[in-house]
Every structure is written in structure tokens, then in C-alpha cells.
Simulated scan of single mutants.
Amino acid sequence: MLPFSDPAAVARYAEGPPRLVPGFGDLHRMALLLLAECVPPHGQVLVLGAGGGLELKAFAESQPSWLFTGVDPSAEMLQLARATLGPLLAQVRLHEGYIDTAPAELYDAATCLLTLHFLSPEQRLDTLRQLRQRLKPGAPLVVAHHSFSQQPDQAQRWLARYAAFAVAAGVAPVQAEKAAAAIRARLPVLSPQQDEELLREAGFTDISLFYAGFTFRGWVAYHDGRA
């Protein structure tokens, strides 16, 4: 089963990120500012991992002249995105699937938020390369996901901090500990150095860290301009 195909998990989804991701709303605002440096009026932005619609809503409300293409493998999460967007859906095209489902167009920018940590290194590299293929030369890609040291003692320390943040935000301690354990056991999390190397290998340049919140990191990187 896909991580977000369970109806109960989908129904609760909107409650999770604000309590589990430090500065969740600010992450969206920072991503928007980075996109706005390059996206022209009436520009087009590709949003990979768009299910739920939370970042699409933030983006569309802030930039009513932009058009968005959202891609997600979960039909249930895309249905939630439609409900979340409401009238803003007029700015958005939604596609069920993975990056190869995204129309083979050239976009002014792309985002992939809270998604890449579900993919193996090989899948991430392929996804990043396909994202690059769909960007105009010099266009930005904004990514953010779990990324922390994989040295056992360091990893455990960061996951403990992740759980403590969740508890401080109102998550029950038992649930916070379960979530941290699941990240360690099930997600192919990489170190920040490994994440940056994959971006370079995929053909991105000028890679800059713009966000760090306990176990999460976010980067902006740019299509290297080569054919």
C-alpha cells in the first residue's frame, strides 16, 4: 500500500506537517520567495509530491497569475488536494503518478517538498534527472525532506529531537516515538552531503541550503544550463 493510500491517514494528513515539520508555513513562504526570483508573471511551476494540496494552496494564493502542475502517486491524496484547493483548482492541473507522469514540458521552476525521503538513492537520482529534464535552463528546483547524519549515534540524537519537537507541538509521546522509529526503520534517509551530491550528479548547480529544522533540510538548486 502506498504511504498515503489509507483513508484514515489521508483524513488526518493536514494535521501532521504543521506539528511535525519545524516552520512548516515558513518553509512554504521561503520556497515561494526562491521561486519568485525566477518565475515570470504567468509562469508555470511543477510540484512533485503534490497530494494533500497544502503547498499548492499556499503557492496559488500568493501567486494568482502562476499555473501549477501537481503530480502525486496517491489518488486519495489528490482528491484531498482538490478539496483543499477549492476555487484555486482553476490554477492547477493534477496528475496521478510519478515524475514520468508529469507532462514533458519545460517549466519555469519545480518543487519537491517532503517527498524525496521516501525514495531510494537510485530512485531519487532518476527523479532528480527527470525533474531537470522538465526545467528551463537556469530554472530553480526547491526540495526539502528528512536529511541528517546517518552515523548511528548522530541519527539517534536527531530523531530524539524530532520526537521532542512533535511532543512540544501536541503529539502524544508514544505516537512521536513511533514516528521517529518508523523514520529510522523504513525511510531511506540520506545525509545532507549525500543529498547535495545527488543534486550535482543529476545536473543541478549553485546548490544552496536555505532551510534546516532538526531532521529536515531544504535546498534550492538550478538547472545547469546544459542540453
Rank of each mutant, 00 (worst) to 15 (best):
P87N: 05
G53F: 13
E76F: 09
A14Q: 13
F4D: 01
L80A: 15
G23K: 04
G51P: 12
L54K: 05
S74A: 10
L56Q: 14
F68Q: 02
P18G: 06
V21M: 03
Q44L: 09
S5K: 03
P22L: 10
A90H: 05
V47W: 04
M30G: 03
D6M: 06
L88I: 08
L35A: 13
S74N: 02
R19K: 15
G25N: 12
G70P: 05
A83G: 04
G53A: 14
E15R: 14
L54H: 09
A50C: 12
A9P: 00
R29K: 06
A31D: 06
L89M: 11
S62K: 10
S62Y: 09
A36Y: 13
P64K: 04
G49H: 08
K57N: 12
K57E: 15
V47H: 13
H95S: 06
H42V: 03
P73D: 10
E15D: 15
H28Y: 06
G70N: 04
L27E: 03
A36I: 09
G43V: 08
P40L: 12
A14W: 01
P40K: 12
R82D: 00
R12N: 13
G49N: 10
G16L: 07
P7K: 02
G51A: 13
V39M: 14
G86I: 07
G49F: 09
G23L: 07
F4M: 11
A31G: 14
A60Y: 02
V92M: 06
L80H: 02
G43T: 11
H42D: 15
A81H: 05
G23R: 07
Y13A: 01
A36G: 15
L54E: 15
S62V: 02
R93S: 14
W66E: 09
E55W: 02
P17G: 14
D26K: 04
V45M: 03
W66A: 08
H42G: 10
A60I: 02
A14M: 02
E55C: 03
Q44T: 07
